[in-house]
Design a protein around this nucleic acid. Structure first.
Ligand SMILES: [Mn+2]
Ligand SMILES: [Mn+2]
Ligand SMILES: [Zn+2]
Ligand SMILES: [Zn+2]
Lengths: 141, 141
DNA sequence: TTCGCAAGTGAGAATGGTTCTCACTGTACA
DNA sequence: TGTACAGTGAGAACCATTCTCACTTGCGAA
């Protein structure tokens, strides 16, 4: 249950936090903005302040429950941290986001950091391009 | 001369644009925020509006003269597009920025995009970590 | 050269995503 | 159950960036 998850990371179990967590789990879109989360909760009758949404997301991130991505030209998006690490490729035409994991790149990053005398703690890799003709909604008409 | 550079990309040669371009060329810091550029120009007696700085930077970027980077937790920084492409590693403690180029990663990105049905147009890769003890000013005291 | 005018500029207002404030509320724990 | 203190919501504040608009400037045509 989501209550467990909150307790496990040392956060009090409150209604807003539970609602936000379950929305992140059940929503069709995997990557959501704070605004989107706020609106979807509002539309389903949950009255949760936008400030609370931002606060909860920041806490979830600090606790490692979710990750934050800033794709260029868009707002910050959040996603549940489930399963293995991955990076993203974004269609600059329609905004579609695909995920990928590449061991070669991941390993290389560690080597590069080491060679430059850094202790690697994180990285952000996002590819941008246009998705293929049929798949890209924005290309049809 | 910088006038050439502006003309070559189809931009009128104006005083603000020239000042901004030369500052980017001569400044000690390679990666600068709009605010920093504005302040440095002001301090050297050049009166150029902040809005103009932002406008010029946007135009320079569109023209391919400079590139824009958004490191997490910081403001957008700009740098002159000279020499070959590179990515960045940022010290989360002191903010130092180092540059690197890795052919393996670059090639892999292209392959990944292709495999996923995307035509790659750009990418953003930034590593984060702590730079080594002696080199990191923030670690001394 | 001089002219005309589209393009550029600067000051300040507006924007918009995110954070802060503060009085009120709810959770957790004894 | 009571209480202390963390959490919440509404709206104000923040702040990087963009927009507005009256004025200026670069530059091709004459
Ligand atoms: Mn993802
Ligand atoms: Mn650089
Ligand atoms: Zn697409
Ligand atoms: Zn450092």
């Amino acid at each position: 249950m989501e209550s467990e998850e909150l307790r496990n990371v040392g956060l009090k179990v409150t209604t807003p936090r539970l609602k936000i967590l379950s929305l992140l789990e059940s929503a069709k879109a995997k990557h959501m903005t704070a605004e989107t989360i706020y609106r979807q909760l509002s539309e389903s009758g949950e009255v949760i302040g936008l400030a609370t949404v931002y606060r909860a997301l920041a806490q979830f991130e600090a606790a490692g429950l979710i990750t934050r991505h800033q794709f260029e030209g868009g707002q910050t998006v959040f996603e549940l941290e489930r399963g293995p690490h991955h990076d993203h490729i974004v269609c600059v035409r329609c905004g579609r986001v695909e995920e990928f994991y590449d061991k070669v790149i991941e390993d290389r990053q560690r080597e590069i950091a080491e060679k430059l005398g850094f202790t690697l703690s994180d990285h952000a890799l996002t590819l941008y391009g246009e998705c293929s003709g049929g798949a890209c909604p924005a290309k049809n008409g």
